[in-house]
Design a protein around this nucleic acid. Structure first.
Length: 218
DNA sequence: GCGACAG
DNA sequence: ATCTTGTCGC
């Protein structure tokens, strides 16, 4: 029945109980950025993953996967649209990254299980959500100082950070996905930012996605 | 009813 | 996400 997504809501509520908000990383060697873009005209999803060395942000592996779109975009249910393509893409990697950065929310979600949290649970890996826009929560705009941030609150819970990744640009929304905590997620994203709004993993994965798409369309 | 609403 | 032109600012 069109518009009936109760089963997905229920699944999210059950999955959210399994999310672990505790940093499980003692040392980070590799970090991956994942992204998905779409072309409705041909009903295709373009997923990419770019893996970097955490220390010097050097690209050490990149993969992509093109698949059919089989779930619509519905705020709050993004993971059901993006995870299938991402899993096939991630499976192509030879390297198993220590951490994944997702283009979307972690626990900053109506039911506490955004794309990053859901993906982390499935992979049983640490993940961080880094979104360009807010989904839920309230906050005070962070100062203009570079890399300053303000807390993101939702239902009296501290769920993430609104980070000023670049001066005179809208801040980004960082929240832990899985096997990660709020403070650590913010600190890690700070380390992954260079001179752009988005942290390198997500920024490069997004750029790669556009490249793959252009090649496909000719 | 109204506003909000990741990609 | 995608579409889409010019335009303001460093």
């Amino acid at each position: 029945m069109k518009g009936d997504y109760k089963k997905y809501f229920k699944l999210q509520i059950e999955l959210s109980k399994k999310v672990i908000l505790k940093n499980s990383l003692s040392r980070i060697n590799t970090v991956a950025g994942v992204d998905v873009s779409y072309v409705e005209r041909v009903k295709k999803a373009f997923a990419t993953i770019v893996i970097f060395s955490y220390k010097n942000l050097e690209i050490i592996e990149k993969r992509y996967h093109i698949s059919d779109i089989n779930f619509p975009y519905i705020p709050g249910l993004l993971s059901f649209r993006e995870i299938p393509p991402l899993l096939k893409c991630i499976k192509k990697c030879k390297i198993d990254p220590d951490l994944f950065i997702c283009d979307g929310q972690g626990i900053a979600h109506p039911r506490g299980i955004g794309l990053a949290s859901h993906l982390g649970l499935i992979l049983n890996k640490p993940t961080i959500g880094c979104a360009k826009k807010k989904l839920v929560g309230s906050f005070i705009p962070p100062p203009q100082n570079i890399k300053s941030w303000s807390p993101l609150w939702y239902k009296d819970k501290f769920i993430g950070g609104v980070l000023r990744s670049k001066i005179k640009v809208k801040p980004i929304f960082v929240s832990p996905g899985h096997l990660m905590d709020v403070y650590t997620s913010i600190e890690i994203v700070k380390n992954l930012i260079t001179k752009y709004k988005l942290p390198e993993p997500t920024r490069i994965a997004d750029k790669y996605t556009g490249e793959v798409k252009r090649n496909y369309l000719g």
